[in-house]
Design a protein around this nucleic acid. Sequence first.
DNA 1: TACGCTATTGGCCGGTCGGCCAATTAACAG
DNA 2: CTGTTAATTGGCCGACCGGCCAATAGCGTA
Lengths: 225, 225
Amino acid sequence: MPIYLGEVRPRRQEQDEQQDPRRKRDPDATRKAILDAAEDLFVCHGQSATSLSQIAKAAEVTKSLIHHHFGSKEELWQAVQERHFEEYFKIQKRMISESASTAELLGESVVAYFRFLQQHPRCVRWWSWATLEEENWATAGEKELFELGIGKIREAQDAGEIRADLEPFFIIKTLIALPMAWFQTRAETLSLIDSDVEPEALDDMYLRDMVSLFLDGVRCRNGGA
Amino acid sequence: MPIYLGEVRPRRQEQDEQQDPRRKRDPDATRKAILDAAEDLFVCHGQSATSLSQIAKAAEVTKSLIHHHFGSKEELWQAVQERHFEEYFKIQKRMISESASTAELLGESVVAYFRFLQQHPRCVRWWSWATLEEENWATAGEKELFELGIGKIREAQDAGEIRADLEPFFIIKTLIALPMAWFQTRAETLSLIDSDVEPEALDDMYLRDMVSLFLDGVRCRNGGA
DNA sequence: TACGCTATTGGCCGGTCGGCCAATTAACAG
DNA sequence: CTGTTAATTGGCCGACCGGCCAATAGCGTA
């Protein structure tokens, strides 16, 4: 004996019906709605704290439909992850490819990465969940990204722009760590700061010092040693 | 899927019975056993993926007993967290206080912090869970730690050992981020490296380059600019 | 010894979990 | 128009969740 807990709104609004009133089934839109809702909730609460019921409700879909399209909760998580990282790798790859391999390569890269994470807070949280909730193997896309970056750094090292005594892999690790860690702990940092600067201003202040420190750390010294 | 960072030892071994066979109740030992088991499982799987039944089984205790001693699951998590961070802050505070505030302060500090995390992998994971699973406010202990570190850095800046144009708070952020991020992504890194170097050797290689980069970034340049 | 306190136990609760299944029905190919 | 496919639905399942409670039993104390 089901109980009506309020009205169930249709997944597709009236505008959609005007666009195509005959179409009452749309598996692609359904899949997207489920993926979107799942990404929201997974990013917010993590996988194990998110139930299929919540996802179904948020996507305005029945729970059975999730199983129909994705199989299990685990497979849904994988599907969301694939879509997420596909987008991420595409953007990062373009970023690295477009960057010059000479003078201020690393400075531009770290700023670009910082701005990217600033505009995509989901990336930070998703990546954090992923490293905690599953065995973390490097994917092919990740390897490709590192190879690309290592190549660029080697060029800059050969050109004498960057210290040759530092392993390029570790430089990239540092480049990634500094922006990522900042946004991972952003809320905590804000509560740690007494003054009432706006978050964006604080971001910029950190970025300036961080880039300065990083560049001084990787650049060749004039005086040697 | 999950990573096990240590086994849960039985609460009372046979030796204990020999020590005091009459003693069949020991609330303190029980509390400790529950906290130990909870810490193991929370660190491994996070709070929401850990059930009270699992904790009870691991601690060799009934579920009711957990509620008796700690109230709710949430309160148990808090209790574990308090015990964990109390230990953490004590060690860190001693580390900072003992460090000199002159020449190689930051070099020693970052190495010490790196070694600490290397020997306490739980800290990395616990801290990661904490930043994801709960609203993260800076605690009093954390504030104290930062104040302490900022003071030390200011002294070094006044002594001309460290660049005065960098905000001490951000220097500390960097100092923490570089070791933390390394161990957060350690498994992924190992799968990314083709060669079969031992993990400890890789740690040392990263540490050397990271410290060198960090010190070059914060130290005053002879030539100015 | 007897009593009170509480650590400890086993059993139970309502609710929710992930997952499965049969029935319905829209879309489409012939 | 008819048959096939598959998107979609509601209902159901056993398992397990966190939490509660009455009963038991070991300990300190009077």
